[in-house]
């Protein structure tokens, strides 16, 4: 079984990042970058599948500037067999990422594309579904459990009202939710050891151009400051006076 795991470099999801004063971008001075947490879950799952079935081969792929190498090294440290950086400084939207990944996937011919359901910077939740549409493959988004079979997979996915289980033939696209697994901790030596694993760089495979462009960023206006109440009685009096209970 071959698994492709797309990896996105994102600002540390726990950091408080603000837009630049002129709204043209984010002020990322001094902020760390990480693998998008959902992609890390996808990479972890691919490696667990490989640990159960050693014939599995996993490829991590990222699209972006040379700095994305850092996140691909981490993916290799988690256990990817190989990493590919599609290097570009072009403006990218979900449709361009999907087009590039489709071209890559057609070449690598995996059984599963396993990826995060959304990135924690853009929060769009689009690329997996777009890729599946373009490839004509089945999809399972918001996945919390993946059970590979022979020529098929069974995926448990979270829904608005509970869960459901989908069975689909491979090749397919699976996007992970938070509860699929808890990624392993990688200590620095692990990342250094992964330096001997193959990481190839190449240019873009398509000329797709963005359909959506970011024009401005602004901080969310703060909520008016609240206050503390001293007791349950004071809380209830306040809520009653506002007609809330």
């Amino acid at each position: 079984m071959k698994i492709v795991v797309p990896i996105k470099r994102v600002v540390d999801p726990y950091a408080k990042v603000k837009p630049l004063a002129d709204g043209t971008g984010l002020d990322v001075a001094g902020v760390k970058f990480e693998i998008n947490p959902f992609d890390e879950i996808a990479m972890e799952e691919a490696v667990r599948i490989k640990e159960r079935d050693p014939s599995t081969y996993t490829v991590a792929v990222s699209i972006g500037g040379p700095e994305c190498e850092e996140q691909l090294r981490k993916a290799l440290a988690i256990g990817a067999d190989e990493a590919v950086l599609i290097e570009t400084t072009d403006g990218l939207d979900a449709s361009v990422i999907a087009a590039e990944l489709v071209a890559f996937v057609q070449e690598v011919a995996p059984d599963i594309v396993l990826m995060g359901k959304q990135s924690t910077d853009d929060d769009s939740n689009q690329v997996g579904q777009m890729m599946a549409a373009m490839l004509g493959w089945p999809q399972a988004t918001f996945a919390c459990k993946l059970t590979p079979g022979v020529g098929e997979v069974t995926v448990d996915r979270e829904t608005d009202s509970g869960e459901e289980s989908l069975r689909m033939k491979t090749p397919c696209v699976v996007t992970t939710d938070l509860r699929m697994n808890q990624p392993r901790y990688i200590a620095l030596p692990g990342i250094i050891k992964a330096r001997s694993k193959p990481l190839a760089k190449r240019g873009r495979g398509t000329s797709a151009s963005p359909r959506v462009r970011l024009t401005h960023l602004a901080a969310l206006p703060p909520r008016p400051p609240g206050r503390k109440v001293a007791s349950v009685d004071e809380l209830l009096t306040e809520l009653k006076s506002r007609g809330l209970v």
Partner: peptide, 23 residues
């Protein structure tokens, strides 16, 4: 916006070649 519409709309946008904006 819901999990069901996010699942569906991005796939449909991918079929059409549409621009897609979430939330």
């Amino acid at each position: 916006s819901s999990m069901a519409t996010k699942d569906l709309m991005a796939r449909a946008a991918g079929l059409v070649g549409a621009a897609m904006v979430t939330d």
